[in-house]
Design a protein around this nucleic acid. Structure first.
Length: 159
DNA sequence: GCCAACGTTGGC
DNA sequence: GCCAACGTTGGC
C-alpha cells in the first residue's frame, strides 16, 4: 500500500511582493501564484498539487516571518505568463510558449489569521521538528507539509 | 547590511 | 561530469 498523497503545502512569499492582505483585499479573494523559479518548487506545483489542496501562506523576509493563514489550490498548474513577459522581473529568455519552463497556479484565500504562527513559535512545536521549511538552509518557496505538522499549526491558532 | 547556505551556470 | 564562481534567499 502506498502512503497517502501529500495534499498539504506551504507557500512562501515576501509580503512586499505578494501578501495575504493583498489577497484578502481582492473581491474574489483569488490570486495567481507566479514567479516560482526553482525546479523543485515547480515540480511540487505541477506534479504534486491538486485543486482543493490546502496550503499555509507564509511570509518571509519581513519583520515577523511565519504562517499568516490558509489558501486553497484553485487551479491546476499552467504555464506562468510572467516567463514570456519581457517587462516582468520573472521573464525567462530561455523559456518559450512551445516549451514553457515555469508553472503558476491560482490560489483562493480560506482563512487569514488574526495573529500569525511565527517562525519563532514554529520552532517550539514538537510536531514540526522535522518540517521541511524549518530545516537549516532550506530556501524552497513551496514545500510539502505533513499531516501532523498541519494539525499542530492549526491547533496553535485554535483551529 | 551581513552572511551562511543553497541552486544554477558555464568553462573545461 | 566536475566544480568554481556567481546570484539569490532569508533569518538575524
Amino acid at each position: 500500500m502506498s502512503p497517502p498523497r501529500i495534499d498539504r503545502w506551504l507557500l512562501k512569499s515576501e509580503p512586499d511582493e505578494f501578501s495575504i492582505d493583498t489577497l484578502a483585499a481582492r473581491p474574489n479573494r483569488r490570486g495567481v501564484w507566479d514567479g516560482v523559479r526553482n525546479y523543485q518548487a515547480r515540480n511540487y506545483m505541477r506534479d504534486g498539487m491538486q485543486v482543493g489542496d490546502l496550503a499555509f501562506f507564509y511570509h518571509s523576509s519581513c519583520a515577523v516571518p511565519g504562517v499568516y493563514g490558509i489558501v486553497s489550490i484553485a487551479s491546476a498548474a499552467y504555464a506562468d505568463p510572467a516567463q514570456f513577459d519581457r517587462k516582468s522581473a520573472y521573464f525567462d529568455p530561455k523559456s518559450s510558449t512551445a516549451a514553457p519552463r515555469w508553472s503558476a497556479i491560482d490560489v483562493a484565500l480560506v482563512e487569514r489569521w488574526h495573529a500569525p504562527v511565527t517562525l519563532e513559535r514554529l520552532r517550539t512545536i514538537a510536531a514540526c521538528a522535522d518540517m521541511v521549511t524549518l530545516r537549516r538552509g532550506n530556501r524552497l518557496s513551496i514545500t510539502p507539509v505533513a499531516a501532523r505538522e498541519w494539525r499542530a499549526i492549526c491547533a496553535a491558532v485554535g483551529r
